[in-house]
Computed example of a mutant assay.
Amino acid sequence: MAGIGGEHRATLAARLLGAGRQLLPRGHVPTSMERHDCAQAEELAVAVLGRAAYDAAYAEGGGRTLEEAAALVDAHRE
């Protein structure tokens, strides 16, 4: 998501990564594939946004409820 569509999609990716991380169940241990995919998505989004803007969007996403995160995805489907 972050690598295509410029700043708008990179911001969306950062918000969704933050929401996803926050909404994981307590004690969740990510698989190696999860770690790889999240690291790659973060790297792509940071490359577009820069670290400060990525961190701000990630933090904003982390404050969302499951319903808010789902609505964000629905609003940006193409």
Results as ranks from 00 to 15, higher is better:
G20W: 04
G3C: 07
Q40N: 14
T65G: 05
I4S: 11
E67G: 11
H76F: 02
R9C: 05
Q22G: 13
A41T: 08
A39M: 02
V48Y: 09
G62R: 02
E68K: 06
A19K: 02
L17T: 06
L72I: 04
L66G: 14
G20K: 02
G18M: 03
P25T: 05
G61A: 10
E67W: 11
T31V: 08
E60T: 15
V73Q: 00
A57I: 04
E42L: 06
A57D: 04
A69C: 07
D74H: 12
Q22W: 09
G6C: 03
A45W: 02
G5V: 04
E78G: 14
A2R: 08
G62N: 02
H76V: 05
M33T: 13
A2G: 07
E7L: 01
H28W: 10
T11K: 11
A71E: 13
M1Q: 01
R51T: 09
A45I: 03
G27H: 01
H76W: 04
R21N: 13
A13E: 10
G27D: 02
R77E: 12
L16C: 08
H8E: 15
E78D: 14
E42T: 12
G27P: 00
Y54G: 06
S32Y: 12
R9Q: 08
M33C: 03
M33R: 15
V29Y: 01
A10Y: 02
G20E: 03
E67Y: 11
H28S: 13
A13C: 13
E7Y: 08
A71W: 00
L12S: 01
L49Y: 04
G27E: 08
E78F: 12
A41R: 08
D55Q: 10
L44C: 10
L44A: 11
L66F: 15
G63V: 08
A59P: 07
A59S: 11
A39I: 00
A10H: 01
T31M: 04
A19I: 07
A47S: 15
L17H: 01
A39T: 12
A19R: 01
L16T: 00
E43Q: 14
E78P: 12
H36V: 09
R77P: 00
T31K: 00
R9E: 10
H8A: 15
A52Q: 14
G27S: 02
R21I: 11
H36Y: 14
A71M: 08
G20A: 05
I4M: 14
R26K: 15
S32Q: 15
M33I: 13
A70N: 13
A13R: 08
A57W: 05
P25F: 04
